[in-house]
Amino acid sequence: MSLFRTLRSIRRVGVREWWHQMQYIGDAKSGTFVGADQFGNRYFENVNQYEEVPGRHRWVDFAQHNYHASQVPPEWHSWLQHIRLNPPPQDPVMLNSSPPWKEPWVENLTGTRGAYKPYNTVPPKITAWEPKTTSRT
């Protein structure tokens, strides 16, 4: 990152947002706000092709401090990875394709208290030994 690019980003987004970007994504970026998802994540795009590295002109600003990739819903992931041209709020296919059986997106909860834990209904084949004791009278 050059000094000129850093100063340009500070001028465009402000010192506070620049500091936030440096702490979270480690790069100073400036672009247009495209939309937000149900988790509060904000999505941006820089359409000037000479300011960003090719393929890195779309990015997400996560709402949570401890973030990971499964917090991005599938429709926004397809836009970030250039599978779809338009973002979900502007894409006519995404706006008209919400089937009634589709459940809301939930992030991957593996490793947390909300993780799926199956239970077993079959009695164990091996049981622990329990000594038989009689009471003394």
Rank of each mutant, 00 (worst) to 15 (best):
L109E: 08
H65E: 15
S9P: 04
N41F: 00
Q81K: 15
E17C: 05
M22E: 06
P73D: 03
P100D: 12
P99D: 02
P123G: 01
W59E: 03
V122Y: 14
L80V: 03
H68E: 00
F62V: 06
Y116F: 12
Q81S: 15
F4N: 10
W129K: 08
H57A: 08
D27N: 13
L95E: 12
F62P: 03
A63S: 12
S9D: 02
Q49T: 15
T134N: 11
K29N: 06
T127D: 09
W59T: 01
P92S: 00
W105G: 05
N41S: 04
S70G: 02
P89M: 01
P100W: 15
N96A: 14
H57C: 08
N41W: 04
E107F: 06
R12Y: 06
I10A: 02
K125G: 08
R136L: 13
R5E: 08
R12S: 09
G111E: 01
W59S: 04
V53G: 09
Y43F: 07
L7V: 09
W129S: 01
R11V: 07
Q64R: 14
N120P: 02
N96Q: 14
P54Y: 04
P89F: 04
R136Y: 10
F62Y: 07
D91R: 01
R113D: 13
S2Y: 04
V47E: 13
H57Q: 10
P92T: 03
M1C: 11
H77M: 10
R84S: 10
T134R: 14
S2L: 10
W19E: 11
Q90E: 11
T127R: 11
Q64N: 11
L3G: 14
H65V: 12
A115W: 02
F44G: 03
S2M: 09
A128H: 13
P74C: 04
A36T: 12
G111Q: 00
K132L: 04
E75Q: 05
S97T: 12
P54H: 05
G14R: 02
V15R: 07
P74N: 05
S135Q: 15
A115S: 12
G35I: 03
N120Y: 06
V15N: 09
E103A: 12
I83E: 09
P87R: 05
P124I: 02
P104Q: 07
P74L: 06
R12M: 09
R8L: 07
P100L: 10
V106E: 10
F44A: 06
N108A: 05
Y116R: 08
S2H: 10
Y67V: 02
K29S: 06
P104F: 02
T127H: 11
I83V: 13
A28H: 07
Y50F: 11
V47P: 05
P100N: 13
L85Q: 14
G14L: 00
A69H: 11
A128Y: 13
N46L: 07
Y43S: 06
Y119T: 15
W79G: 04
V53C: 11
R136T: 13
D37E: 07
N108P: 05
W18H: 13
F39S: 01
P74T: 01
R11M: 08
W59H: 00
W101I: 05
T137E: 14
E51D: 14
V13R: 02
T6C: 15
Y50A: 11
G31Y: 07
L85V: 14
D91G: 04
G111W: 05
H57P: 02
P99T: 03
V53N: 14
H20P: 00
R56F: 14
A63D: 04
G55I: 00
T133L: 13
W129I: 00
N86K: 15
P92W: 05
A69V: 09
